[in-house]
Amino acid sequence: MRLNHPQGAAAEETAWRFLQQQGCRLRVRNWHCPFGEIDLIVEHQATLVFVEVRYRQSQAYGGAAHSIGVTKLGRLQRSAEYYIQQHRITQPCRIDAVLIHGRQAPEWLTNITG
């Protein structure tokens, strides 16, 4: 997500506050690697969670969920694998998404890569 875009930065902050209320602990924000960027890396219970944050003004044209295509999923998976290898992670991991539509409450989708 482009953090130089005010709506993107606000959505990411909203997503982080929401995840914090769900008991998540922040590990890294806006982590970059050769394969892409991961918006948030958090710990939820005993699981390391790589979080993609998506904001859309409305749910028209499929909304925020529809904006996470096959290419983006592949980049997320490769980036997460890179992080796991670089940091020698042994705990369970998954890739989630937090979707934000306008002023509605965030929606947390778990394990979006299956």
Rank of each mutant, 00 (worst) to 15 (best):
M1P: 07
M1K: 05
M1S: 09
M1A: 06
M1H: 08
R2I: 09
H5M: 06
H5P: 07
H5Q: 14
Q7A: 14
Q7I: 15
A9R: 15
A10K: 13
A11P: 02
A11H: 05
E12Y: 02
E12V: 13
T14C: 02
T14Y: 00
A15D: 01
W16H: 09
F18L: 02
L19R: 09
L19M: 12
L19A: 09
L19N: 11
Q20W: 04
Q21L: 01
Q21D: 11
Q22T: 06
G23V: 05
C24L: 02
R25V: 14
R25Q: 14
L26Q: 06
L26V: 03
R27E: 11
V28A: 15
R29H: 11
R29V: 10
R29K: 14
N30G: 06
N30C: 12
W31A: 13
W31I: 08
H32Q: 13
H32I: 15
C33M: 10
C33P: 01
P34S: 05
G36A: 01
I38Q: 06
D39T: 10
I41H: 09
V42E: 08
V42D: 12
V42L: 01
Q45N: 15
Q45D: 15
T47E: 12
T47M: 10
L48N: 03
L48G: 04
L48Q: 13
V49Q: 14
E52Q: 08
V53A: 01
V53R: 02
R56V: 10
R56G: 02
Q57K: 05
Q57H: 04
S58N: 01
S58T: 13
Q59P: 05
Q59V: 10
Q59I: 11
Q59R: 15
Q59A: 12
A60F: 05
Y61D: 09
G62Q: 01
A64D: 00
A64W: 01
A65K: 06
S67C: 04
I68L: 00
G69V: 02
G69D: 13
G69C: 05
V70P: 15
V70Y: 15
T71W: 14
T71G: 13
K72Y: 10
K72I: 09
K72A: 12
K72G: 06
L73Q: 15
L73C: 13
L73T: 04
R75E: 04
R75G: 08
R75W: 03
R78C: 10
R78M: 07
R78F: 03
R78G: 06
R78S: 12
S79I: 00
A80S: 09
E81I: 08
E81D: 14
E81M: 14
Y83T: 03
Q85H: 12
Q86I: 05
H87C: 09
R88F: 13
R88I: 03
R88Y: 13
R88D: 07
R88L: 09
I89Q: 07
I89H: 10
I89M: 07
T90D: 01
T90F: 07
Q91D: 00
P92A: 06
P92D: 00
R94D: 11
R94C: 08
D96T: 06
D96I: 07
A97R: 03
L99R: 03
L99H: 05
I100S: 00
I100A: 00
H101A: 03
G102C: 11
R103C: 08
A105G: 01
P106D: 03
W108P: 09
W108F: 03
L109K: 11
L109V: 08
T110W: 05
N111K: 09
N111V: 00
N111T: 05
N111D: 14
N111Y: 04
I112K: 02
G114S: 12
G114F: 13
